[in-house]
Every structure is written in C-alpha cells, then in structure tokens.
C-alpha cells in the first residue's frame, strides 16, 4: 500500500496547489452561509408570528436543529452532488491526457493501489468540504440557547447528518473517479459524472408521478431519498448500504477500467 499512499499524497499536493479545491470550498461556504442565514431568518419569523398561547406548545416541539440545521444539510447535499464532479474529474483523465498515466502503469504498483490512492485523496478533500459545513451548527450553538437551558443544537442529529453528507460525498467521488477513468478529457469526465449524479439525486421526481413498484424503485435509487433519515437523526442500515454499495461498485469498476488498460 506504499504506492497508494504515495499517490494519495501527490494527489492532495495537486488539490491544494491548484485552485480547484479552494473554489469548491468557497462555493460550498458561500451557499451554505446563504442557506443558513435564510433558514435562521425563516425560523425567527415563524416563532415571532406564533401567538403566545398556542405557540408555547408548538414551540416545544419545534426544534431548531430540525428547522435550521437539517434544512441546511439538505441543501448542502445538492452542492456536494454538484461540486464532486469537479473535484473528481482530473483524477485519472488528467493522467491520461498528460501521459503521466504511462508512469503509473509502468511502476510496480497494482491497479488497485492507484485506485485506492486517488480515492483516499478525494475523500480527504470531501471531508474538508463537509467540515466547512459543520461550522454552521457550531455557530448556531454559540448564539442560541435551548428551551431548558441546554444546548440549542441536538448534536446527535448534527452528527448523523454530517455522516450522511459524508457518505453521499463518498458515493459521488467514487462515481466521479470511475467516470474519470473512462476518458482523457477532464471536461467530459466532469459533465458525465454531473449528469449521472444529478439524475440519481432527482430520480424521486418519478416517484411522485409513478406508483407501485416504479415508485419504490425510483425512491430506492435516489441518493437524496437515502439522505433523509440521516438528517432526522437516524442511521438506517439500508441507507448506509446504499451509499457504500455505490462506493464499492465505483472503486471496483475503476480498478477494472485501469486493469483493462493492460489488456486492451
């Protein structure tokens, strides 16, 4: 695995010496901030409009974490889906374009070491991007106080939400890595993985129209649907399995694609 670590290190080196990762982080921070302030505003309006009598009961059920943090995380999910293709596009395609792929392929490393190294670096960048989002619940907890004097933020829900986002990010990077291994063009890699990932994200549209098995299939396929439980503070096995199977499939297919080069 020494080869994989060397590749991961080089890949991180490239991520952080070129603008691409920073642009992704800034876009993420900017939109997350927009959504965050928007949700806080909406929450405040809602609370102030509530009459003192009926409101008291409602307010006790109304939970800052669900209203602000979960909504924020749900919209962050879209940005993960949109930003991941741009973070993963270069991974293999650029090596082929710059002909450095020949170096990797003639070095004593197995194809899977290449895949693992590249994916590891991609995960680190994704984790940083999600860590930026994690700052917002922290900010919220500094300024808000819970009804009974405790923390206003349910850290458990925040934790499962972040885990869900990370799994979503891991899935997007695995899909992006595979697509990147199929082409020499980073633009093609970005566009194709963007289309695939967006399709998986919005496939629930068919669930609204369809019924019966079609509806279940659409919901089962959807990457946004599987994020829901995480945002509500629950970790469900089927959701974890969904994301991890995309990761496994993506990595396996990338390995096959690189190994296949030896046969073509």
């Amino acid at each position: 695995m020494r080869g994989a670590l060397a590749i991961a290190k080089k890949e991180l080196n490239v991520y952080f010496t070129t603008p691409i990762a920073y642009v992704a982080f800034m876009v993420m921070a900017f939109f997350a901030a927009q959504f965050f302030t928007g949700s806080v505003e909406a929450y405040r309006n809602f609370v102030t409009r509530m009459s003192p009598y009926e409101g008291q009961q409602m307010l006790e059920q109304l939970n800052l974490t669900d209203v602000v943090v979960s909504r924020l995380f749900a919209s962050v999910g879209v940005f993960i889906v949109i930003s991941a293709p741009f973070l993963s596009m270069r991974l293999v395609a650029e090596e082929k374009r710059a002909r450095t792929f020949e170096l990797l392929m003639t070095s004593p490393v197995r194809p899977f070491e290449i895949v693992a190294g590249k994916y590891l670096a991609a995960l680190v960048v994704m984790a940083v991007s999600i860590a930026i989002v994690a700052a917002f619940p922290v900010i919220l907890s500094l300024f808000a106080r819970g009804a009974k004097g405790g923390s206003a933020v349910e850290w458990q829900t925040v934790g499962t939400g972040l885990l869900g986002l990370f799994l979503l990010g891991a899935m997007c990077m695995a899909v992006g890595l595979f697509v990147s291994s199929l082409t020499e063009s980073v633009i093609v890699a970005a566009l194709v993985s963007l289309i695939v990932l967006l399709a998986l994200w919005v496939v629930t549209i068919f669930a609204v129209a369809g019924e019966g098995p079609l509806r279940d299939l659409a919901r089962g396929m959807s990457s946004s649907e599987h994020l829901m439980a995480f945002l509500q503070g629950r970790i469900e096995l089927k959701d974890v399995v969904y994301y991890l199977s995309f990761v496994a499939l993506g990595l396996w297919l990338t390995d096959r694609a690189i190994e296949g080069h030896r046969w073509a």
Binding site: V14, L104, S107
Partner: peptide, 17 residues
Amino acid sequence: YADMTPRAYLAFCAGLK
C-alpha cells in the same frame, strides 16, 4: 507533472517504486 517540483516528483516516483 506540470504543477510539481522535480524534487516532489522524484519523491513521488520513489514512493511508486
């Protein structure tokens, strides 16, 4: 790699090898 220094590049290759 255009973005790397030769030193970093050679260290990377040493890792690969």
